[in-house]
Nucleic acid binder design. Sequence first.
RNA 1: CGGGAUGUGGCUCAGCUUGGUAGAGCGCUUGGUUCGGGACUAAGAGGUCGUGGGUCCGAAUCCCACCAUCCCGACCA
Length: 582
Amino acid sequence: MRMSNFFLPTLREEPQDAEIESHKLMLKAALLRKVAAGIYSYLPLGLIALKKVENIIRDEMNKIGAVELLFPAIMPKELWEETGRWFIYGDEMFRLKDRKSREFCLGPTHEEAVVDLARNEMRSYKELPKTLYQIQTKYRDEIRPRFGLIRAREFVMKDAYSFDASDDSLEETYNKIYHAYTEIFKRCGLETIPIEADSGAIGGKVSHEFVVESEVGSESDYVFCPKCHYASNIEAAKSSITAEESSEDTNELTKVETFDFKTIEEVSQFLKVEKSKILKSLLYKLDGEFILALMRGDDELNEIKLKNLFNAKNISQATGEEVLKTMGANVGAIGPVNTKVKIVLDKRIIGMKNFITGANANGYHFLNVNMGRDFKEENIYDIRNVKSGEPCPKCGTPIELRQGIEVGHAFKLGTKYSEKMHATFLDSEGKEQFYIMGCYGIGVGRTLQSVVEQHHDVHGIKWPVSIAPFQVEILPLNSSDSEINNFSEELYLDLTNKGFDTLLDDRLDASAGVKFNDADLIGIPIQLIIGKTFKKDKKIEIKIRETGEKLQLEKGSLELFLKTYFSKELQKLHKNNSRGAI
RNA sequence: CGGGAUGUGGCUCAGCUUGGUAGAGCGCUUGGUUCGGGACUAAGAGGUCGUGGGUCCGAAUCCCACCAUCCCGACCA
């Protein structure tokens, strides 16, 4: 590609709208432009890279026997009513009407579409297992789009859906996908960690997230055990810490005035006690029912755990008014003593004695509150967030808290959707069975941006060869020198003929500095510099973007050098790959 | 939705406190010079200062409302 024909409006200044490096670089290097919050145009360079990621995904999905198809982005309301998700999805779903007022949505995901297809077109266990996938643009009206493609409202996603006849078969499918994902991300140059996760709105039993380690935001918080490599999303991470049995005598319940001190922090300072002696009382509303959640003052509630405990669809903290009405006191003065509201206790408070709680009267707290005596000892579960340094639930080693970007997610769905939509097949005994399903997503744009996030320096992007938009960029430095230009042109045609994806910076009005800087910015792995070195000894100067290394070569030995370099680099992205084709 | 911030030529920003002719750098156009790490020079083009209302003789500047965008939380590939 000649740059004069290409479209590459690189930016000189730091884009004002971008905060994190990868986002800035994608705008600066002319991969992307924003059209609205969370909605982006892919410019040519970005599109090429995106397609490369897509093709790696295709390749690995096809290897495990998955089949590509394409569902519509627009789907009718009726389909989504069958599963109830027309309502469950709420404001996050982009909705629209056609000219006859029939209602549609822009698909945020495609379980409904695939199950509909399966129930109409598949009949027999003989057709199973089957995995279908697509690479599609999805639409979610995110509460807060962020960081460019990391969380967009329109985004490209690869989603796969599996249909199995038995749990064992699903297990096998799931494992194949799991390995394919590991391979996909590795080939993109990303180190990912598979972590145990909550299954969220999609539903289902088992799920794994594939997370790219990154400082960026706190897109996905997870715990990681450095010893046994237990890794879990913070939402799903099990708390294995328990309080020691207190040796204190139980003292008499005492009501004290605490005036306007409300928060755990304030009360602990005012009463001069550790935060851990105070019982945190939070009133929640789960599908309309009020629940008082109790945990140690220095712990945090894990809403997902609480929600899952009651199989609730919706969870929200009670509003100030609801708290007053239900508990008879304001937030900050409530507690479990003398209340009819259902309570849930975090298991870490077992064994604790004489703690402090709100008295359900504004301005007052109780001292020496004790479980069993002052309130019922019931509904004891793990409802807190795990903290850094706590024992790993598997091996006891202190765990680490880490964060990253979730680039993939695999779910075992079971029969959740096939039952709701009555999607069945006949088993070998002629009996009707629900499909046992799984679904598996990869955020393609997000993966692309994660690559940029992990492969850059102060000058720009350093593409892994597997997804670099071009392999080679030729920089003729003095555009008024016909010898340089002619040679560069010749070299360009030669490399292109030999099958190298080559970009020729043939801009006449760009100075050497501009060409160097743009080349580093857009991050093509190999730069071929045609300038002084060429004028002097007819040699090509090679700069390897990844390492900054420079060397000089005769034109005759260039092809071998390039072939060797690219195959070596590609090898690296495959190493540790012991798995053959399945 | 709660908290914080921003909105001025294509881009990055100054001007606003203290109201009075709308600025800079980069980019763009034309000519000349240059040519290995974001060149120099001369001449140009380009903005109803986010939108609407208000105060005032007069508003980019003060007041009100709205909108958009970014950051922190709830949501998620």
